[in-house]
Design a binder for these strands. Structure first.
Lengths: 356, 356
DNA sequence: TGTACCTTTGTGCACGAACACAGAATTATT
DNA sequence: AATAATTCTGTGTTCGTGCACAAAGGTACA
């Protein structure tokens, strides 16, 4: 273990005072060409790593960070993301961080547009975005780019933007894997119903599109000739959903398997239970409280987890280390796709009851 | 956010100096009854949390920690555990920690006995143990208990010991889940071969025993009448293994599925490839480099991961926080049992290429 | 030459816990 | 009662960084 290089050591080597080194390290300006070159020369020779503990103590300035995501429902996906974000803040409790959270209705493009336009004008040091609508997100990001404000995506990433980083599942692979898992537990060529959300003012969520593509590609690649029945799912008019489901089950077709490309599997589980429909295999996204319950009861066979706590935690941690220590940032971060059954579900609760 | 309570604040409230508060907080003695009671009274009212950054800076003493586990092979399970341990040390690079690592041959009880007896006499502040042989581990732990040295288990836990904590998979559930997964992808009542390590001087690893129990319990609970063929696996005489496998495949029985209760699935994959045996479904433990390769080639269908990096990381982190900050410790820590397929394996490499 | 202004540089303090050390208070011993 | 020994307590230093502030050096202009 080589002995640590301190700012004062660099100063001595470069023949200046620690104040000047500090100004170069933090690009604070007011440094002569000669001094800057001397210091940069030394910095290239030695491997200076600031003592993060001392930095954290000495830091006087505060940071304002804005977080915008779809609305947070209790025990659901976005709550986990926010839990992760707050968890990261706990690690930096001695740094003054002002957090502002704005949520929008992920099924209503006007809500998103309204919130994003509001945010765009605010003062901030950085932004975390849970994107849903590509166009609106691109607009917001353009404004951030102009103002040189770094932003990080969680849950998914959007093309034609320049985020500092993103934390997201590979949604295509996700759909692909769902197809493999569901077909492995149903008879060959059995019908499969796909449950998919519809939204106002836009076609479909970018995540859902990718998952569906992955799903159908798997079936094609493996020459599966299962008949795919698509059921819409409406958030704005929830009363319609029962109708969609009854139509499905009243048709003459057998429905041995249901694939839920979003996290609303518990809704279907409830319908099946209320209508005494048995023997339907089901796979669904995300370990929401309701889904976990349905999984434990055996109504859902597989849940796919995408580490929402980790996504939130890492995006905030990455951001803070970038802002405070100018740490290098890994841009593309695909998270784990956890396959969850009633057997291993109990071990997936890291952030709920303990500290990472 | 309530303002932080500092040692000096507590001192003022109790009417003493910060030095005395420090002595109480660290149980350093030399404090009068009256002062101690006054300070403890204040401590109960206020929620004092030391600033870990300042603690880390101010800490002058060093800690000696011993780690003992089975031998480390490249790209294998125990290497990941040690990676996690070192990763935790990086977070505490400013704390002086002297680490000593002792490995033993996990298939040879005499090797373990020898190492454990050696370790028992050494000076140390804490111990991390990857246990294999129950008797030997109990003996070591007894000596640690007598000397008031805290120890933490990784990989598995041993009855009749009093560890500070353990990080382990629930190996029973692990075997149970393996049974469910393998039976879901093979025909009903198909034969299943189980591949199990044998060791000198002892019956079987405690982890393997638990996994096997979970496995057979699943089959019983679900009234599966699959015929189970047990194949031994010898580490001390590896030349025998080919023979065991050829006997299996030369018998008149069909072998549609192989379950590997340890992490040596790649060995079987190689055998099958060399002998042009196809169509065998296989499930195996752990994401060793060789197993991941076999998984990607399609020779293994499922791998079960047990977060070895996290186990090592957490055990060391827990230990350090206990030693340095006297943080409370959660004793029982069952890690995730990750279900890995060729689709999601690429996302399970957190510690390999990035920092948590 | 004197004043105003800007650029550049060095010095010094704050952050809060850990611990060393000196000195005060109390108890024990002669 | 005087001294020695012990117990107890307060003060002061240390850690390395961030940043405020003051001062020095230089340039421009009346």
């Amino acid at each position: 273990m080589q002995k640590k290089v301190r700012i004062i050591d660099i100063a001595k080597m470069a023949g200046v005072s620690k104040g000047t080194v500090d100004r170069v390290l933090h690009s604070r300006g007011n440094v002569s060409e000669a001094a800057r070159i001397a210091i940069e020369g030394v910095l290239e020779k030695v491997n200076y790593k600031p003592n993060i503990h001392v930095s954290a103590i000495s830091l006087k300035r505060s940071y304002k960070i804005i977080v915008t995501t779809p609305e947070i429902s209790l025990g659901a996906y976005w709550e986990s993301i926010h839990n992760g974000i707050h968890h990261a803040l706990e690690e930096y409790e001695n740094v003054k961080i002002e957090l502002q959270v704005f949520t929008y209705n992920q099924y209503d493009i006007y809500s998103c547009r309204h919130i994003f336009e509001k945010i765009a004008g605010f003062e901030m040091d950085a932004l975390i975005v849970g994107p849903t609508f590509p166009e609106e997100t691109i607009n917001l990001c353009k404004k951030m780019d102009d103002r040189d404000i770094p932003y990080i995506f969680v849950d998914s990433t959007i093309d034609s933007t320049a985020p500092l980083a993103f934390y997201s599942a590979d949604h295509y692979v996700c759909g692909f894997m769902m197809a493999k898992l569901i077909t492995s537990i149903i008879p060959e060529n059995a019908n499969i119903a796909i449950f998919q959300a519809v939204r106002t003012g836009d076609k479909s969520a970018n995540t859902t599109v990718l998952r569906k593509k992955g799903f159908t590609d798997y079936l094609e690649n493996n020459r599966c000739s299962n008949l795919i029945l698509t059921i819409p799912f409406s958030v704005t008019a929830p009363e319609d959903n029962e109708m969609y489901l009854s139509r499905l089950f009243q048709s003459q077709r057998e429905v041995p398997a249901i694939v839920v490309l979003n996290s609303r599997g518990n809704f279907i589980a409830d319908y099946l239970e209320a209508n005494h429909i048995k023997g339907v295999r089901m796979i669904c996204m995300d370990l929401t409280a309701a889904n976990v319950e349905a999984l434990k009861k055996g109504q859902i066979d597989y849940l796919i987890g995408q580490e929402p706590e980790y996504q939130g935690f890492s995006s905030m941690k990455t951001l803070l280390e970038y802002l405070i220590f100018k740490s290098p940032v890994k841009k593309q971060n695909y998270v784990q796709l956890d396959i969850i059954t009633r057997e291993n579900v109990g071990f997936y609760k890291r952030f709920n009851n303990t500290v990472y």
